[in-house]
Computed example of a mutant assay.
Amino acid sequence: MGKLVVVENVTLDGVMQAPGGADEDTRRDFPHGGWAHPYADHVMAETMGKGMGADGAMLFGRRTYEQFHGFWSKQTDGNPYTEVLNRKRKYVASRTLTEPLPWENSSLLGGDATEAVAALKRQVEGDLVVLGSGRLVQSLAGAGLVDVYTLSIHPLTLGTGTKLFPDGAYGTLELVDVVPTTTGVIIATYRPTAG
């Protein structure tokens, strides 16, 4: 049985929206896209690279899948992430996409996302890693399906934007690992606990 691992960039005030670019996710007129870039360093690249190289598969919501496919499937610069992302099995939870999906090694999960992911966890060996995919993560967390959170916590607040944990989401977490970067980001790995 696989573990569901959520990997997210978040701010100190919990915002996860559009860390990668200005036009990544402008819903609700979000003005701060690309906030994570100034904090990238070799420590983050090495730490995330270890996780990317592990056995398992990836899980995306539709929006994140389309953004990743639009960028990573076209890269030819030798970035090691490109090879990993293209090679890994990718599952996509979407009610609007149809097969065949355009990115190699991609499969569509049909029906209710939480039920499909619960079944997938029983089938996948290794980690089932979710990158981004905020709405999907919130649904999976609400259903108690998340086994691990790896959060790159950035030293800034934005005051607006979609948060990883929405208002009313109660839970307790156990810290299992922490890696500080040279730019002030804390890469913290948590395991949900009963509480």
Rank of each mutant, 00 (worst) to 15 (best):
R27V: 11
D23I: 05
N105G: 04
E83N: 12
A40I: 09
W72H: 01
E104N: 10
G132W: 05
L108Q: 06
A113G: 08
A45K: 10
M44A: 14
D127M: 08
K88M: 12
E66S: 11
A118L: 07
A22T: 03
A45Y: 09
M52I: 10
F71E: 06
H42T: 15
W103V: 09
A118N: 05
A116S: 04
G78I: 13
G34N: 13
H42E: 15
T26W: 06
A118S: 10
V84A: 12
L120T: 05
D112S: 05
K88C: 12
A22L: 03
T76P: 00
D23P: 05
K74V: 14
P31H: 07
H37W: 12
Y81C: 09
L97A: 10
E104M: 09
G78C: 14
G53N: 05
K50S: 13
R27A: 14
N105C: 01
R135S: 11
S107D: 13
W103P: 09
P80F: 14
G110N: 02
L59Y: 08
V117F: 04
A93Y: 04
Y91F: 13
G33S: 08
G111K: 09
L120F: 07
T64W: 03
T114F: 01
E104C: 07
R89L: 06
A40D: 07
G53E: 04
S133A: 10
M52F: 10
G70W: 04
Y81V: 11
A36N: 09
S133Y: 07
K88V: 11
E24T: 03
P38T: 10
H37P: 00
L108C: 02
V117L: 00
R135M: 08
Y91V: 02
E24F: 00
A57Y: 08
T47K: 15
E46P: 09
A40G: 11
V124D: 02
T26H: 10
A118K: 03
G34V: 09
V84T: 15
V124T: 05
G110D: 01
G134N: 11
K90H: 00
S107G: 08
L108D: 00
G61H: 01
M48R: 14
E125I: 05
Q67S: 06
R122S: 15
D127Q: 11
F30N: 02
D77S: 15
V117H: 00
H37T: 14
R28E: 12
D41P: 02
T82F: 05
A93M: 06
M48Q: 14
R122L: 12
Q123K: 12
D127S: 10
V43E: 09
Q75F: 11
G34W: 07
G34R: 09
G78Y: 14
A22S: 08
Q67N: 08
R62D: 04
H42W: 10
P102V: 03
K74G: 10
F60S: 01
